[in-house]
Design a protein around this nucleic acid. Structure first.
Length: 444
RNA sequence: GUGGAUGUAGCUCAAUAGGCGGAGCAGCUGAUUGUGGAUCAGCAGGUUGAGGGUUCGAGCCCCUUCAUCCACCCCA
């Protein structure tokens, strides 16, 4: 065997997913897709590459530097790997106005690429999972998104989580109240966004450092940190902030969302209003939401909100849009941490391995495999001529649950023997009943 | 982009003060040619990330470079 000359290595920040890992990832992907379909979201796929001009300038200068350029040496088009799924969505909505009827509900579960410095849980190629509703002004759309999040997380097995809901209009009003606009307002958001990390005192210090008057800072802190049950929190803010029209509008939207969520039977403990939650600086214009795993405290797994100005970029008009991004990579990590994978998904998709005793029994083994496959049982036939013990060892290592034994004795009697590796239990059954026998061994 | 740490077998890590590069796991063979895990015996696996320097002698010290990890920045 020649020694490999090429060092097997991965590009920085990129990963392989070996079969045992892929099985888990696809389990999560499949549940997500199921729930999204349940809510009437439909799949969208766009190319990994976009024209560079489609991407550039949509994210801000910092982010533009993180975009992978992918132009072919002799290609005439400037191409880049997509940086998120929102810009492709906006392009699609602008491009297929004949084919898409609004409101457009789509989801996309695809990799994106960002040339960031890799860190724990942060990669240069990673999957994003976005669900958005384009062209719906109503808060019913926002409530649908929140309900979708709650159902998805529940189906995945998460128990203790809460969707935090805020409204950009409220934050704007708070900025107005503090006399801030533009860049200083963005900085205010940045400070408040660190609430989880640096706590109330930390945020207060930052606001003071940013030159906001002591009295105003204390008012802001009071406004955003006061915790009251359910919509009482909205009542309180309404009292204090009603002189600001942006605040009134924001609170009104949150009240509508609360009403819709209640009507849709979303459990009240699955969401809360949290005025310290900001969601970056970006393009949000209305309600924003973020889901945190609360017990144990494991951080956020979804983020989203309403962004009425972005999708119209490729259409020359605003299009009211709301949506969420599932932190699917983070969710996959937490599924392991919280042990949420059902035991029946093992390290392999194979349900039965048909062992082969020798060349003279190969054909019967192949026939048995075909028979099991016809009955929708995932079947592997052992492909080397090795001692039965080796074959058993292989099956054991791969965690294949059942091995079929079809030697000269069985063949002579027209039967097949199956062994369940977990407990060593064996049954012998007539050939015709092979599939039924395997099924009985696989259940429980 | 800034700062710190670490690079030794496929993986996880040893190696006295600078003095013959080891172990566990994984792999392969056998004990056991119709039955896996456990045990035992054996085999194989290396340019110590790369390049240079100091030294009689470098895995170890110095310089450069590359890679990985961690923290910060950022995260639309």
């Amino acid at each position: 065997m020649a020694k490999p000359k090429i060092e097997p290595r991965l590009p920085k920040g990129m990963r392989d997913f070996l079969p045992a890992q892929m099985i888990k990832r696809e389990y999560v992907f499949n549940i997500v897709r199921e729930v999204f379909h349940l809510y009437g979201f439909e799949p969208l796929q766009t190319p990994s590459l976009e024209l560079t001009e489609t991407l550039m300038g949509k994210y801000g200068e910092d982010a533009d530097k993180l975009i992978y350029n992918a132009r072919h040496t002799e290609g005439k088009e400037e191409l880049s790997l997509r940086y998120d799924l929102t810009v492709p969505l906006a392009r699609v909505v602008g491009q297929y106005q004949n084919d898409i009827s609004l409101p457009f509900k789509r989801y996309q579960l695809s990799p994106v690429w960002r040339a960031e410095r890799p860190q724990r849980g942060r990669y240069r190629e990673f999957y994003q999972c976005d669900a958005d509703i384009v062209g719906a002004q109503s808060m019913l759309a926002d409530a649908e998104i929140i309900s979708l999040i709650v159902t998805t997380l529940k189906r995945l097995g998460f128990k203790q989580f809460v969707v935090k809901i805020n409204n950009r209009k409220l934050l704007t009003a708070i900025g107005e109240y503090a006399g801030l606009d533009g860049e200083p307002l963005a900085n205010l958001y940045r400070s408040i966004d660190k609430f989880d990390k640096i706590g109330a005192d930390g945020v207060r210090d930052e606001l003071l450092k940013r030159g906001i008057a002591l009295e105003v800072t204390d008012r802001i802190m009071e406004l955003i940190t006061r915790k009251l049950p359910g919509t009482e929190q909205l009542d309180y803010l309404d009292d204090v902030m009603s002189s600001f029209s942006a605040a009134r509008a924001g609170i009104d939207e949150l009240r509508q969302i609360a009403r819709h969520l209640q009507a849709a039977n979303v459990p009240a403990d699955a969401y809360e209003f949290d005025f310290t939650m900001v969601r970056g600086l970006g393009y949000y214009t209305g309600p924003i939401y973020e889901t945190v795993i609360t017990e144990p405290n494991l951080g956020s797994v979804t983020g989203g909100g309403r962004y009425d100005e972005l999708v119209g970029l490729f259409r020359g008009e605003s299009l009211p849009t709301t949506g969420t991004s599932l932190g699917i990579e983070r969710i996959i990590d937490l599924m392991d941490v919280l042990d949420l994978y059902p035991p029946e998904i093992g390290g392999t998709v194979v349900q039965v391995m048909v062992s082969v005793f020798g060349e003279d029994t190969q054909d019967q083994a192949a026939a048995l495999a075909a028979q099991l496959r016809a009955a929708d049982i995932c079947t592997e036939i052992y492909l080397q001529d090795r001692a039965l013990g080796k074959q058993m060892g292989y099956a054991d290592k791969k965690q294949i649950p059942v091995v079929a034994l079809l030697g000269p004795d069985e063949i002579a009697q027209g039967v097949v023997k199956f062994k369940r590796l977990r407990d060593g239990y064996e049954i012998t059954t007539p050939n015709a009943e092979a599939a039924t026998a395997v099924r009985s061994l696989l259940t429980r």
